[in-house]
Design a protein around this nucleic acid. Structure first.
Lengths: 176, 176
DNA sequence: GTGCGGCGTTCTGTTTACAGAACACTGTAG
DNA sequence: CTACAGTGTTCTGTAAACAGAACGCCGCAC
């Protein structure tokens, strides 16, 4: 996570032809801090992130990569965010999940009212929610409330690939 | 800044009917940390922000409020982000600036290629860039390269209100 | 060759974010 | 009334983010 953010900052900085020292000076932070930040060895503070984003001329979200195409994965699981649609009453996120054979993706409980759906594109596996375990095969569709812990698990003999849609209700005052 | 983020977290938490203790437990952080974070007395770490965003079921950007309608101001200056349009080759941001009488908004140099425009809606003031000082009156329009430090200044006898458009070229690898 | 200015990294002491405990407060049960 | 389980706050020691200095490296001038 910090590694990705750091790499993104370095890419943005180099794209602008700025030296590390120059960006640190513009941002008003120590260049040692920026060096360790870019190499992912620091867990930056909100202040620091903001200080860096400003002279780079990008919104903070660009550093966090919280947009379409974000890749969240790790540990045999790759989740590519295909689409985020923020509407007044709900946010819908679409991911393409790919799990290596045997890999498990566990999710903590989301907020109340969050619903997940899954359509298997390829491979076999399991999804666990509540006390149920449901087998997954290509073409299968699952829908469940995601306000409890749940997990996806790829079968042992092949990659599991699936489309995952998460709908989060906005509970009123999310947007103003 | 930390104050705004904290307030937003508290609003999201209460909207979901979660107690502070419960959210802290779900996020895996100390409840003292969350308390001080929500009251704006802490400058949270990237890890902490991410830990809090996850059980709330929102993307990180929702906590940072890096979207349309964001209010950036402070110190006699209020900047309301009216619109952000992110395209493949450039990002365009539109702000409505309001400066209290005598207030000054200084900007550090943005990245190379960034261009700003200003249309004065009401009031009088000055804009400084390069070595030039240009007077502003209602209806006036200014356009300049923002890759050098620049400043807006409201006149002494009334609020200055203006539309500010900032165009940042994407320099290739910003989006992937 | 010797300087010297720039680069990014690593090192130093100070500040502070962190987890968790102790705390004060409120409502409910008995 | 006391006991208690819940709330959010403030306190305490530890880990780490911070600014800035010191360092090693490279390229260029001379």
């Amino acid at each position: 996570m910090t590694r990705e953010v750091g790499a993104r900052i370095r890419a943005l900085r180099e794209a602008r032809g700025l030296s590390l020292s120059a960006l640190a000076a513009e941002a008003g932070i120590g260049k040692g801090s920026l060096s360790e930040l870019e190499t992912g060895r620091r867990n930056p503070t909100l202040d620091t992130l903001y200080a860096v984003a400003t002279p780079l001329g990008v919104p903070l979200a660009a550093l966090l990569d919280d947009h379409d195409g974000a890749v969240i994965g790790g540990g045999g699981v790759v989740a590519t965010r295909v689409r985020v649609l923020r509407e007044t009453d709900r946010t819908t996120e679409v991911y393409l999940l790919r799990l290596a054979p045997g890999a498990v993706r566990t999710s903590p409980a989301h907020a109340a009212g969050v619903e997940e759906q899954l359509i298997v594109v390829a491979g076999h596996g399991l999804v666990r929610y509540d006390d149920r375990t449901v087998a997954l095969a290509p073409g299968d569709h699952v829908r469940f409330a995601a306000d409890r812990p749940h997990a996806y698990e790829a079968g042992p003999d092949g990659e599991l690939e699936a489309v995952n849609v998460i709908v989060t209700p906005s509970s009123g005052q999310l947007d103003r």
